[in-house]
Amino acid sequence: MNFAPLDTSLIEQRLRDQVGALEEVLGAAEYSQVRELNGYRMGTAYVVLAAERNPAGAGPQAQRKVAAEAVFGVVVCTRNYRDTVGGAAQDEAALIAGQVRGALHGWAPHGWKPCIWLQANVLDSDQSRVLWLDVFTTTHVLGGTP
């Protein structure tokens, strides 16, 4: 039985296959290594598991399997090459965000409920880069598949 956290490598592969505008798709380990905005490579997405929780909470629990609601983010670094305030970079960020959302919203690997888009935020920007975050949720099963 598998009690591992959500397998974000499946999400990474989905983005590689579906979002041609991305040059590279990496995971949380690579994301955690970057210390400054200029350390992010433009055209790169990072898939990061943010949280998991048991939706049954303190209620009765199954002995062998339990649902796990997972929240994950896709952080994309895009180019800001047209102005100094970040507004024009929104064009590129919006284009890639739309492709990311199209690839993930409603998609469900075996054993998952369909991914649902929750929200988005600009994390940071400067004269050359903008970091855009899209947040999604899904449910998978710890201890097996439904």
Rank of each mutant, 00 (worst) to 15 (best):
N80A: 03
V75T: 05
G98F: 11
L15E: 02
L10F: 04
P55D: 10
V122Q: 11
V48W: 00
D126P: 08
A28M: 13
V100Q: 06
D124P: 02
L142G: 10
F72L: 12
P60M: 02
H105D: 14
D126K: 03
Q61R: 14
G39V: 06
K65P: 06
G57E: 05
G111A: 09
A97R: 02
S128G: 08
L6K: 02
R129S: 02
E52L: 08
P55W: 08
N80R: 05
P146V: 11
T137Y: 06
D7A: 14
T139V: 15
A93W: 01
W132N: 09
V75D: 01
A4G: 06
A50C: 13
D7E: 14
Q63V: 04
E24P: 00
L133R: 12
N80V: 14
A56G: 12
Y31L: 07
V100L: 09
Q13D: 13
G111M: 10
G111W: 11
R101D: 07
R14T: 04
K113V: 07
S9I: 10
E52S: 04
V130S: 00
G43Q: 10
V122R: 08
G102A: 14
E69N: 11
A50S: 13
W112H: 14
Q63C: 07
T44D: 00
P55L: 14
N80Q: 15
P60L: 11
E69I: 06
R129A: 03
E24D: 13
L104P: 03
A45I: 09
E24I: 08
H105T: 15
V66H: 06
A67M: 09
A56T: 12
E69C: 01
G98P: 07
G57P: 08
A97F: 01
D124E: 15
D17Y: 07
E92R: 08
A88Q: 13
G144P: 08
N54D: 15
R53M: 06
M42P: 01
Q119D: 15
G143F: 01
V75Y: 03
E92T: 12
I96E: 00
E24N: 13
C77G: 03
S125G: 08
Q127Y: 12
E69M: 08
A56I: 05
A51D: 14
Y81E: 10
H110V: 14
Y31F: 15
M42V: 15
A108W: 01
H140S: 05
S32M: 13
S128D: 10
W112K: 08
Q63Y: 04
V100G: 01
L142S: 05
D17G: 10
L104I: 00
G73C: 08
E69P: 00
L123S: 03
V75H: 00
M1V: 13
E52Q: 14
G27C: 04
E92F: 05
A58Y: 01
A28N: 09
T139L: 13
V48D: 04
L26T: 07
